[in-house]
């Protein structure tokens, strides 16, 4: 399973780096920024990543998850337009560190649908009030 964190600015790169700092190498995650890119170029970049060009050259059929920071932004639009209905790809918005740590933990053992379900749940669980003024 491959994972791409597609975000505004440097958010994705930082998240991927922090996951590797915590989990070590082999997280299965890469990042991509929308910085300085048109909708067309951003979409094309995701298409290239989905095809896995530069690896086997024959195109990747490996299942993948694209994590996006915010629904409705340029990365979300580009990711939706880059995917064909037949692609084994899931898009998940609202990416956070807990979600990505889950991906690094389970990406080699779980099937796509089960993994997505767990990651969405884990990401939501991480959003909680810890205390402070009442």
């Amino acid at each position: 399973m491959r994972g791409l964190v597609a975000t505004h600015g440097g958010i994705g790169a930082e998240l991927v780096e922090v996951v590797a700092m915590i989990m070590g190498p082999g997280t299965g995650l890469e990042s991509l920024s929308n910085h300085g890119k048109s909708a067309h170029d951003l979409t094309e970049e995701i298409v290239v990543w989905l095809r896995g060009e530069g690896e086997s050259g024959a195109g990747s059929q490996e299942p993948a998850i694209i994590f996006i920071d915010d629904y409705g932004g340029s990365c979300a639009n580009a990711a939706q337009l880059a995917c064909r209905p037949s692609d084994p790809v899931a898009l998940v918005s609202g990416v956070n560190l807990a979600m990505l740590l889950g991906f690094a933990t389970w990406h080699e053992e779980l099937e796509l649908e089960e993994l997505v379900q767990r990651l969405v749940e884990r990401g939501r669980t991480a959003i909680t009030r810890l205390g402070g003024a009442s």
């Binding site: 505004h8 048109s38 909708a39 067309h40 951003l42 915010d70 409705g72 932004g73 340029s74 639009n77």
Partner: peptide
Amino acid sequence: DDRLIHGQVTV
């Protein structure tokens, strides 16, 4: 805007 409809526009 060559990003068309996106955060800078909608938000």
